[in-house]
Amino acid sequence: MTELTTTQAAPRPSLLREIRRYALFALLALMVIGFWYVQPAFIRSANLFSILQAVSVVAILGVGVSITMAADGFDLSVGSVAASSVMAASYAMVVWQMDAAETMALVLLMGALIGLANGLLIVRVGVPDLLATLATMFLLTGLQLIPTGGRSITAGMVLPDGSTVPGTFDPAFLILGRSRLLDLVPLSVVAMALVALVAWFLMERTRWGRVFYAIGGNETAAHLSGAPTKAYRLSAYVISGTLASLGGLIVASRVGRGDVSAGNSLLLDAVAASLIGYAVLDKRRPHVIGTVVGAIFVGVLLNGLTMLNAPYYTQDFVKGVVLVGALAATFGLGKKR
């Protein structure tokens, strides 16, 4: 018999908890209804799918970021990996005259290798994750400008050595960004849904996901439980890099040219989506569903505000407000369960 009295914990204040769990969904529904009321065109399926199409790249990058965050890391290089992938895909087709399949394989491989380099820098060399991926970000941002002398890549452009490029974008490549499934769902949205589904399954339903989170929660405990923690952390960056290059492929196939400024806001948007995701279902941790919902949340808000003629330059401010609110709600309210 123990003499320390263990009192049964009181049942959780379930109403408050339920409210917090679904708060972001409720806000999302409120927003949709509000924008619909003010601007009936908002609810048209074409507009809704254009919102999803607009957020698909951010959501895919965000899933990668949230997987690295689950393993207590951080990938600041996703934006620049996506931007370099845009340039690499364009260069491969326009200069090297590769076809769509070869280009995609090359770019995804490049993303995985950059992720591997990030991971080795962090796990093997021991550079802190933020610094390592920040360095990679700078490296890639500069590197992508060198082959073309800082110019965007289009068919018929003139290279720095004075020659004219021989190739063009493979029409098959443009299908990914420009065509729709059943004439309704953009393929990029399908890609986002697939990525989200696979990543959700991996992170929430398999032992590998459990170990990713265990490493993020307590790396020593995971290590002493026999998990190869370094391999897991490395693979998180490889996944993140690969997903970022997939995002880049979608951008390139939608734009149809290698635009040097393509990836400008992707990093911050992806990180914001992951962080807003903390509040979704009151998980207080990075998770796949939350990241996707976070990206959609921001997308709906921006689309609605644009329809209401809010100026373009207010967008970053609005994102900031949402992020601060979501984080404060996650960490501040009811810290003690």
């Binding site: 339903r205 032992r207 459990r210 989170y213 929660g217 405990a221 998990a227």
Partner: peptide, 30 residues
């Protein structure tokens, strides 16, 4: 040994299972 409460697998069941995941769930599915 233990995980903070917000992490999946921080329950009593998950805490006990952590080192045995590989043997208990060889296919990967929890």
């Amino acid at each position: 040994s233990l995980l903070p409460p917000e992490v999946p697998g921080a329950s009593i069941a998950g805490t006990i299972a952590l080192p045995h995941l590989k043997r208990w769930f060889p296919g990967g599915l929890l």
